[in-house]
């Protein structure tokens, strides 16, 4: 049953991701990315990461994708050429990566690290336990993340404001 659920989510994720690349209209691409985000959130729920599933829907689908759609409709590009001439290079690179992954999977036989038996019973995915880890072990990276957001905010304002660079 769990495998069936995973296969459903995986199939929809791969199909929606392909549609993002293939579709001609950017709005349809963004909407297909929305479908993919929701199914990734579903995958997180099956992995007992409920907090991240909620964050995925709120931040990715609610904020980032709305920003994309806003810009797509703001620019309103009429003529659209879909692919450029790098198709063979991209195809070559994709095939090389796929074969490399397949070769690694076959030769190494997927020697994934075994779970730590001591921490197996820990309540993974609980919001409270994520908060404990985030505010103790990863406190300094958390503060740096706020700095990154500040820099991105100032950068976005400066880049998109008209005439702020050539005022002098």
């Amino acid at each position: 049953m769990a495998t069936f659920v995973f296969l459903y989510f995986a199939a929809v994720i791969v199909m929606a991701a392909s549609l993002v690349v293939v579709l001609r209209n950017p709005i349809y691409s963004a909407l297909s990315l929305l479908v993919m985000f929701f199914h990734v959130a579903g995958l997180y729920v099956t992995l007992h990461a409920e907090f991240l599933a909620a964050i995925q829907i709120i931040v990715y689908a609610g904020a980032i994708l709305v920003l994309y759609l806003f810009v797509v409709m703001l620019l309103n590009v009429k003529r659209e050429e879909r692919f450029n001439q790098q198709g063979p290079v991209a195809l070559f690179l994709g095939v090389v990566l796929l074969t490399e992954a397949a070769l690694l999977a076959v030769s190494r036989g997927f020697t994934v690290a075994t779970p730590d038996p001591g921490r197996e019973g820990a309540a993974v995915g609980n919001t409270e336990s994520i908060g404990e880890v985030l505010y103790s072990t990863y406190l300094f990276p958390f503060e740096i993340a706020s700095l990154i957001l500040l820099v991105a905010m100032i950068g976005a304002v400066i880049l998109s404001k008209k005439g702020i660079m050539e005022s002098k």
Partner: peptide, 17 residues
């Protein structure tokens, strides 16, 4: 799929997606 999309598409918004 994302890597191929970055390399293949011409539209900047699709590249960011």
């Amino acid at each position: 799929i994302g890597l191929v999309g970055v390399l293949v598409r011409k539209n900047l918004i699709i590249i960011l997606l």
